[in-house]
Design a protein around this nucleic acid. Structure first.
Lengths: 308, 308
DNA sequence: CCTACCCATCGGGATAACCGATCGATCCTG
DNA sequence: CAGGATCGATCGGTTATCCCGATGGGTAGG
C-alpha cells in the first residue's frame, strides 16, 4: 500500500497557470485569460517551480520565456490539466452512453415475462451497458439488495425488510386457468362458487405468488381444495392442461402463451390481483441505468393487455 | 482564445482523496494513507461531489461505497492524478533521455574542427536529442544568442556584448603554415624574423581569427606583408600550398589535415594563441543538453594534440 | 531622457484547508 | 440485549495559501 502522504505535489491550479502563461507568453495576459490578478499567476508559477525543483521560465527583460525544461513540461502539464478538467464531462458522457453495470434481480413468477422485453429495450438504448440478472425468491432478492449484490429487484410489494424500499408500479389480475375441455362456460366469466367445484393446482408457497394465491383462497374458503403443489408456473400450466385441476395465474404469464388445451378467464367479481413493483436498497443512490430500467418496467406494466 | 476563468473545477487534492477512499474503501484508512485527518478527507470528497454535481459515494452504515457514477469516475480520476503527479518525473526522465532541442552556433574557424566530434558524442549519448547548428560570424552569433535563436555559441572570447557572457575553455596555438618545398628548416622551429621574409596569406578580418592574426602581426611589425586575403581557411591552405605565401592558422585546423604540400611549425617564442570558449545569453537558464555540450567541448579542447 | 509597459515583490484580507474533539449511527461481542 | 468499539459526519478554531491592490525595478520604445 503506497504512502501518498507527500505534500510536495503540484495542484491543478499551478499547472493551469503555467500552461496559460506558456501559451500566451505573458503573465499579464495569462492572468486576464484565467480571470486572476497578475501577482497570483506569478505566485503560482513560482510555487510550481519550487515544487518541481527547476525553473520553467526565464525572466528575460519584461517578458517570460520557457526554459528547455519548461518546454518539455508544457505538453505534460497540458495533458494533466486536461485530464483533471475532463473527469466530470467524461463521467457525464459515460452515463449518457449508458456505460456501467446494472445488476437486476427478479422473482421467477415475473422474470420470464417482464425482463425480456425490458432488457431488450435497455440494450437497444445503451448497447454498452453491462447487464447482470439474478432470478431468485423474494427473500434472497431482499438480502442481495441489502448487501447491494443487486441494485434493483423486480418483485411484488409489499415486502418486509427494514432497509429495502419498494415502488409499486401497478397491479395485474390473477386469471383462472382451466383445461379447455372441461365444459366450463367462460363466456360470461365465472364466480368463486364455480371455482370451488374443481380441484386446485397451487404454486409452491415459497413463491410469493403462491403465498398470495393461498392467502386469497383461504380468505374465500377455497383453502383445502389443493390437489397439486408445483414449484414453478410452467408446471402449473402443464398440470392444468392434463386436467388435474384449475389454478390462478398472473395475467403476464398468459399473455404470450399458446392457448392449446387451456382456457383462461377473469373472476367476475372480487378478482385477485398482485402488485408489481421494484425494490431498492434504502439510502443508496440509483444509477442512470436503474432509473431507465424502472421507467421501462413501468411502461411494460402499463402496456394494455391484448387478449387472444 | 478560450476563457479559462472557471472556478468550479476540481483540484488534484480532491481527486487524490476520492481515489484513496475508493481504493481502500474507508475514509479513515484513506486519511491514514494520505497523511491527513479524517475530517479533511470527508470535506474534500464532499467538495468534489459538489463540484461534479453528483454523489460519488453512498454513505451506507458506517462505511462508504462507490455509486455507479463514482465507479465510472474512479479510473478517470486515477489517470488524472497520475498525470499530475508524473509531470515532474516525466520531465526528469525526458531530460535524462536527452530529449529536447539544442541550438548551437559556431564561428567558421572552429565549427568544422570542433563540432563534428562533439556533436557525434552528444548524439551517441542522447539519441533522442534534436541538434540545430548555425555557423556564422561572431557578431551574428551574439545577436542570435541575444534573441535566443541559439542557446550556446562556440567562439573565441572575449566578445563585446552587454548581455552575453562567455566561458573560456582553453587556448590553442596558431601555427605557421608554409609550402613544403620552401626549404625552411622547421626542425628547430622558426622565429618572427624568419616569418618576415615571406609574403603572408591572411584570413579576412571579418573573421575574428583574421582580426586576431592581423592584430598579432601588426604588433610584431608584420602588418604589411599580406599578399592575399581569403574568406575561409580552406582557401588559405590552398593558397599556401600554391606557394603564394605563409600564414598563421589554428592548430585544430591542422590536426586532421593532409600534410601534402604543406609544412607546419610553432613559432619559437611568443607564439600567438587564440582563446576557445562558449557564449551564453546572460540571465537564461542552460538546458541539460547545453551543459553536456559545454562539457564535451571542454574535453575536446583539452585533448592532447597528437602530431603527425 | 522619458514614458509606458511588464514582472516581481509587498502587505493585508478573504478563503479554504486542516485539525482535534465530539456526535450519532452501526457493527460486533459478551 | 446491553455495552464497547469503530466509522463517518459535524463543529469550532487555527493556520496556510490564495488572491488582490499597490508599489518597485528594469526594459523597450518614443
Amino acid at each position: 500500500m503506497p504512502d501518498d502522504r507527500r505534500d510536495d505535489r503540484p495542484e491543478a491550479r499551478h499547472l493551469r497557470c503555467f500552461v496559460a502563461v506558456a501559451e500566451v507568453g505573458s503573465v499579464r495576459r495569462a492572468a486576464l485569460r484565467l480571470g486572476l490578478a497578475q501577482p497570483t499567476v506569478t505566485e503560482h508559477v513560482r510555487k510550481l517551480e519550487s515544487l518541481l525543483g527547476f525553473r520553467v521560465f526565464d525572466r528575460v527583460g519584461r517578458s517570460v520565456v520557457l526554459t528547455e525544461q519548461g518546454r518539455l513540461l508544457l505538453p505534460r502539464a497540458r495533458q494533466a490539466v486536461r485530464a483533471v478538467d475532463d473527469v466530470a464531462q467524461g463521467v457525464a458522457d459515460a452515463v449518457d452512453a449508458g456505460q456501467g453495470r446494472l445488476t437486476v434481480g427478479a422473482i421467477p413468477t415475473m422474470s420470464p415475462y417482464l425482463l425480456p422485453p425490458v432488457l431488450a429495450k435497455l440494450r437497444a438504448e445503451f448497447p454498452e451497458c453491462e447487464l447482470v440478472v439474478t432470478e431468485d425468491l423474494t427473500e434472497s432478492l431482499l438480502d442481495r439488495l441489502d448487501e447491494h449484490t443487486i441494485e434493483v429487484a423486480l418483485l411484488s410489494p409489499p415486502v418486509q425488510h427494514p432497509r429495502i424500499e419498494t415502488e409499486t408500479l401497478g397491479h395485474e389480475d390473477l386469471l383462472v386457468v382451466a383445461p379447455a375441455d372441461r365444459g366450463m362456460d367462460l363466456s360470461t366469466g365465472i364466480t368463486l362458487r364455480d371455482l370451488r367445484r374443481y380441484p386446485r393446482i397451487s404454486l409452491s408457497a415459497m413463491h410469493c405468488l403462491g403465498a398470495q394465491v393461498e392467502s386469497f383462497c383461504a380468505r374465500r374458503d377455497l383453502g383445502q381444495q389443493t390437489s397439486c403443489d408445483a414449484a414453478q408456473l410452467e408446471t402449473v400450466f402443464e398440470l392444468v392442461r392434463l386436467g388435474l385441476g384449475v389454478s390462478l395465474v398472473p395475467a403476464m404469464a398468459v399473455r404470450n402463451r399458446s392457448p392449446k388445451g387451456l382456457c383462461y378467464t377473469r373472476l367476475k367479481r372480487d378478482a385477485p390481483r398482485r402488485a408489481l413493483g421494484l425494490g431498492f436498497r434504502a439510502g443508496r443512490s440509483r444509477s442512470a441505468l436503474a432509473d431507465r430500467f424502472a421507467a421501462l418496467v413501468q411502461l411494460e406494466v402499463a402496456r394494455p393487455a391484448k387478449r387472444r
